[in-house]
């Protein structure tokens, strides 16, 4: 099964299980969780089921295209089921079968692995799903987002597309995957990996201080603009600028541009902003549902 066939299979499977098919967020994010289709939709009471691919950037994981398993940018297939159906595990296992993984011939396990995002004030309880020892999915029941208790509880299923494709194609190097129609993953993405890794690690024709200064400045401008947007009640654009801050912070971090104390301060700033945004989103539809800021909120 090619990489694109896998995306098609999962899309078809979840569409037939009641999910809207959304498109990736057209911004640089580290995970599908940052997409408003997850971050905002899991808040509040309204049922919502959605699935989408999210290209996910992890600057720190960039390896210049030289590592067979690690990428600056990988692809997640993200599913949100709200409320989480009682049969969710079975449905998930059916989705694996739909991709050609016969559970009777493998060892499939749900092993404890909880998820927490300090920058989103969010956490959940769940598992990593192991297929013959390979982690292929993160399975999370969201408990809090933006420091607010969620009700009803949503289930987030995040498939690691490259890993599953490598498993199905029995390939040991991600760049050898067949993307589709005989074209290799490397042909599609190798150059991007090389360039993005160089960027992420600050290998740019400018002094390191300047590289850092540019990114700090970009961070600050996006941050204060996000605050303005938030004040103007433009919650979604505020989120987008907050996500830009998050990515800029990741670049500052991977390029070694910030010290430790500063690092903690940046994380705290992003968290404060994203918590305000999440609360702002809830307040848009139901001001009464926004809880008083508690110790968990900031």
């Amino acid at each position: 099964m090619t990489f694109q066939d896998l995306i098609l299979k999962l899309s078809a499977f979840w569409a037939s299980n009641g999910c809207l098919l959304q498109q990736p967020l057209d911004l640089e994010v580290g995970a599908g969780t940052s997409h408003p289709e997850t971050l905002f939709r899991v808040l509040g009471p309204k049922p919502w089921s959605v699935a989408y691919v999210q290209p996910s950037r992890r600057p720190d994981d960039g390896r210049f295209g030289q590592n067979p398993n690690r990428l600056f940018k990988h692809h997640q297939f993200q599913v949100i089921l709200k409320p989480s159906p009682d049969e969710v595990q079975r449905i998930y296992l059916d989705s694996l079968e739909a991709c050609g993984i016969n559970p009777r011939q493998h060892d499939i396990r749900f092993e404890e692995d909880n998820w927490e995002s300090p920058t989103l004030g969010a956490w959940g309880i769940g598992w990593q799903v192991l297929l013959d020892g390979l982690e292929i999915t993160q399975f999370t029941y969201f408990q809090q987002v933006g420091g607010m208790d969620l009700s009803p509880i949503s289930c987030e299923i995040t498939y690691g597309l490259e890993r599953i494709a490598m498993f199905l194609q029995r390939v040991d190097n991600v760049f050898d995957l067949e993307w589709g129609g005989g074209v290799k993953y490397g042909e599609v993405r190798l150059q991007e990996e090389i360039e993005q890794s160089k960027y992420a690690f600050g290998q740019v024709d400018m002094p390191a201080e300047e590289f850092a200064a540019v990114h700090r400045d970009l961070f600050d401008r996006n941050y204060s603009f996000a605050e303005k947007l938030l004040k103007s009640g433009l919650i979604l654009p505020a989120l987008e600028h907050c996500l830009k801050c998050s990515h800029l912070f990741n670049i500052l971090d991977s390029s070694g541009s910030i010290g430790v104390t500063e690092r903690t301060a940046y994380i705290l700033r992003v968290r404060q902003l994203s918590v305000q945004i999440a609360r702002g989103h809830v307040a848009q539809t139901d001001p009464a549902a926004v809880p008083a800021p508690g110790p968990g909120a900031l």
């Binding site: 067979p68 398993n69 009777r104 011939q105 493998h106 060892d107 499939i108 396990r109 297929l131 013959d132 020892g133 390979l134 498993f167 029995r170 040991d172």
Partner: peptide
């Protein structure tokens, strides 16, 4: 490796486990 199965084809599971470990 301890598996939660009565594997029809243990060699398939073994080969996959080997690949994960090798990586």
């Amino acid at each position: 490796t301890v598996v939660n199965m009565q594997p029809e084809k243990p060699e398939v599971i073994a080969r996959n486990a080997e690949r994960v470990l090798a990586a």
